[in-house]
Design a binder for these strands. Structure first.
Length: 742
DNA sequence: ATCATGGCATTTTTT
DNA sequence: ATGCCATGAT
């Protein structure tokens, strides 16, 4: 990047919008950097600006940047924000999740490890099915040793970079011995099927980098600057991966918050962030403690709660926004009263205070808790969305459809084969299927080869042979189309039609089946979109499957549709809402009993902290004295976390809403009205306080999009602008968009 | 091979 | 209470 005047100006603008510690982090030159970013302290802004700074200052070209996040959504958002700062040159940057970066590397390097480039990626369910099959093959009682538990052990071992041999060396009891055997078999099976589970993506990249120094040299030279978001959630394999890529040039920036580490149960290793300074004694450490999201009261409460954890990196969040409203804590009779209370408050906020439903979120510890709430909302006809729960790509019909495509791409994939062989029913039962699978293994054939020649499978009956012949002849035709490079949407439609899958669903004539058909149509749409943008030279099908394996539908979640949002506390991380309710603040639920038993109380506290710090304006915590647990009644003790909030910050007033239920005007508080109005002002000014403030109706000017008018203002500094020209309607971040008022 | 009934467990889950 | 899985009947 040459330093013409315009570029210098942009570089200066870049820093203009930052506070002192943010600027320090952004302008840090080469060498290790640890950014301890408290909740709502603008860490994404720091990351995006730092990337822009590295490029503006000539320290890196866009292609030399590797920026890693944990979710596709975060990656996408970061890419958009960086593109807004840098323009199209940002396109060559790697901004992706650990897993997709690894998948991309392995698409190039997997042959070195004995896989083909068409390797299948198994999700957790696929992997569990394979674990189960391995256990059965070993004659293990899957009631005593559940596939889930064994899978968790194997996954834990992989995340610590222990292969089956290393694991076997460490085993103690009988269970672990069994796991060791299962692990070994599981690995062999995966490899035989040319498949990797999620953990393998990381492990195999580590392997390839360790085994082939020239490969390591290539990637570590290619990524001159590596930046990692949510560093507190990395596991050991990811840690090692970063060492291998960034260990030499040491241009590693990690951003995280130990107080928000909530994925320990998935082997995230909080030590990675706590020990960063031991790994890099010369690391620059920057703390971001100024919060741009919440009121001081909310921050004080959250700070007080998290202060009860030991061994953390001390941070104290503060804001210059003023105290705001007290934290509301309400005790209700049972979970139904709890739901009615939340409902009443939602109505009050919307009817009396002009809040929009999209500004309201309700969090809970476990998915099951959403049910009562949903019932209440449905009855009240308040639109809502539940984030998480059953996912699109986990639905049976979607997995089936993808299973077909997978088998077309990877004829060795026995898991895919087993999934679809008799779906729809075509007379291939458990027994026949097992015979084919066993024969394939014994004869060293792929399942495809074994099934294509059913006459050669010992013990197969006449009707079964006929069934396989018919099935495989259909599949062979489909495969020809796939290999000819047919568009995925077309291929998928052919699959659904030719295999009789759609026909079988249509024959059911149930509402449920209709829903499935609609889901499949949606998948075809996804494929169509993929076809439209795919321009790679590699196999379309391989690329499509790889992409689909690593996305979840929460990535496509829309969050501003005029609906209330319901989700678990885990799903809430990284989000913010003006109004937050956390229900079920009861001992045993939050903190969860099982977590307490496992010694994970501090993680529960962090979870609570994450939930509290999502709230911008109003935070309400509720619990029920009585609740139903699997049919019987349990009596609740208020969560210990409630007691950790300083009483002077709390409104425990038993308002009329506590027992009265539906939308009584009795809960009306004039104080809240004014503070609400004040909040909207702040929100429209943008999270960074850049000074620019926009209101609906303002005429604005954008250097690229031209003239426009503001049609919407959202919290978080997002404005919607309708432009006069080609640009149409766009959402822009006030902080980043070069938008001026006319 | 497929359908129906009973038994058992029942966290969170970015990938 | 509910949903998933295994076992037995057709």
């Amino acid at each position: 990047m040459p330093s013409d005047a315009a570029t210098d100006q942009r570089a200066a603008d870049l820093l203009e919008e930052l506070n002192e510690p943010q600027r320090e982090a952004v302008t840090h030159g080469d060498g290790p950097l640890l950014v301890l970013a408290g909740a709502g302290s603008g860490k994404t802004r720091v990351l995006t600006h730092r990337i822009a700074y590295l490029i503006h200052s000539g320290r890196a070209r866009p292609g030399e940047i590797l920026a890693i996040t944990f979710t596709n959504k975060a990656a996408q958002e970061m890419r958009e924000r960086v593109e807004r700062l840098l323009g199209r040159s940002a396109r060559t940057m790697w901004v992706s999740t650990f897993h997709s970066a690894c998948a991309r590397i392995l698409r190039a390097e997997a042959p070195r490890l004995g896989y083909t480039r068409q390797f299948t990626i198994y999700d957790q369910a696929d992997s569990r099915r394979l674990v189960k099959r391995c256990l059965e093959e070993l004659g293990v009682d899957t009631k005593r040793f559940t596939p889930a538990a064994v899978q968790a052990q194997i996954s834990g071992a992989k995340n610590r970079l222990r292969d089956a041999d290393a694991y076997a060396q460490l085993v103690g009891g009988y269970f672990e011995q069994t796991v060791a055997e299962a692990y070994r078999l599981y690995e062999r099976e995966l490899h035989r099927m040319n498949a990797m589970d999620f953990d393998d993506l990381l492990v195999n990249v580590v392997n390839v980098l360790q085994l082939f120094p020239e490969v390591q040299g290539r990637y570590s030279a290619a990524f001159r600057h590596v930046l990692v978001d949510e560093y507190q959630d990395t596991n050991h394999a990811q840690y090692r991966l970063l060492q291998l890529i960034a260990g030499e040039h040491r241009n590693l920036t990690v951003v995280g918050d130990d107080a928000q580490s909530i994925y320990g149960f998935r082997h995230a290793d909080i030590r990675n962030i706590l020990d960063f300074q031991d790994d890099f004694p010369d690391a620059r450490v920057v703390k971001l403690e100024q919060n741009y999201r919440s009121t001081q009261t909310i921050l004080d409460a959250a700070n007080a709660v998290i202060a009860n954890n030991r061994g953390q990196m001390h941070k104290t969040l503060w804001t210059d926004r003023g105290p705001g409203d007290p934290i509301v804590i309400r005790e209700l009779d049972d979970e139904h009263a709890e739901a009615r209370y939340v409902l009443g408050e939602i109505r009050r906020l919307v009817d009396d205070e002009g809040a929009s439903l999209s500004e309201i979120a309700c969090f809970y510890r476990t998915n099951a808790q959403s049910r009562v709430l949903e019932d209440a909302l449905v009855r009240a006809e308040i639109p809502y969305q539940v984030v998480g729960g059953t996912k699109f790509y986990e639905r049976a019909e979607i997995k089936d459809a993808i299973g077909y495509l997978t088998l077309l791409a990877n004829p060795a994939d026995a898991i895919a084969f087993a999934r679809i062989a008799n779906s729809p029913k075509r007379g291939i039962g458990q027994t026949s299927l097992q015979r084919v699978l066993a024969h394939a293994e014994a004869a060293g054939l792929t399942v495809w080869e074994a099934a294509a020649d059913p006459g050669g499978v010992p013990g197969l009956g006449k009707p079964a042979i006929r069934a396989f012949e018919r099935f495989m002849s259909t599949m062979a035709q489909l495969r020809e189309r796939a290999e000819a490079g047919a568009p995925i949407a077309e291929l998928l439609e052919a699959v659904l039609h030719d295999t009789g899958y759609l026909e079988a669903l249509e024959a059911e004539r149930t509402i449920e089946a209709q829903g499935r058909i609609e889901n499949l149509e949606e998948l075809v749409e996804v494929a169509r979109e993929f076809d439209a943008v795919y321009d790679g030279e590699e196999s379309r099908l391989d690329a499509f499957l790889q992409q689909i394996a690593l996305v979840s539908d929460s990535d496509t979640r829309r969050d501003d549709e005029g609906v209330v949002t319901l989700m678990t506390l885990h799903n809430a991380k990284g989000l913010e809402y003006p109004v937050v309710f956390i229900i079920g603040c009861v001992e045993g639920v939050l903190p969860l009993q099982r977590a307490i038993d496992e010694g994970a109380l501090e993680e529960e506290r962090r979870l609570c902290y994450v939930g509290m710090t999502r709230a911008m304006r109003t935070l309400t915590l509720t619990y029920a004295r009585r609740r139903n647990v699997y049919g019987s009644t349990a009596y609740g003790v208020p969560s210990r976390f409630l007691a950790e909030i300083p009483p002077e910050l709390v409104d425990r007033d038993e308002g009329p809403a506590a027992g009265a239920g539906f939308g009584t005007a009795g809960g009306y508080r004039p104080r809240a009205v004014s503070s609400w109005a004040a909040m909207r002002e702040v929100a429209s000014a943008g999270a960074g306080g850049s000074g620019a403030s926009f209101a609906v109706g303002d005429d604005v000017l954008h250097p690229a999009f031209g003239e426009g008018v503001v049609t919407g203002v959202e919290p978080g500094g997002v404005v919607t602008v309708r432009f006069a020209g080609e640009a149409g309607e766009r959402k822009l971040m006030v902080d980043y968009a070069p938008l001026t008022k006319r």
